[in-house]
């Protein structure tokens, strides 16, 4: 059976760590990093990258448009 794998790339410098994408991700892929960017925000990153299906919900709710989403069939 074909499986769909997604990947989320967050622009770490532009992310303001608002946590809205983490809250919106129903597959528990995203989390806020313990490190901070140069503005002092805990940026969002892919914690469980194997669970991502590339649904693009995180990108839609991101107020700062710092998320790019990729999806591929395996």
């Amino acid at each position: 059976m074909a499986k769909i794998i997604g990947a989320v790339v967050v622009d770490e410098e532009k992310c303001k760590g608002c946590n809205v994408c983490v809250n919106e991700c129903i597959h528990d892929v995203l989390a806020l990093h313990k490190e901070v960017n140069s503005y002092g925000y805990h940026y969002s990153y892919m914690k469980n990258s194997d669970k991502c299906i590339g649904c693009a919900n995180c990108g839609l709710v991101c107020p700062d448009t710092c998320i790019t989403i990729y999806r591929a069939k395996v």
Binding site: I5, G6, A7, V9, G54, A56, G59, L60, I67, T68, I69, Y70, R71, A72
Partner: peptide, 10 residues
Amino acid sequence: IIKQENIVYK
């Protein structure tokens, strides 16, 4: 996966 042709949202 992270390739130009796989972009679904940018």
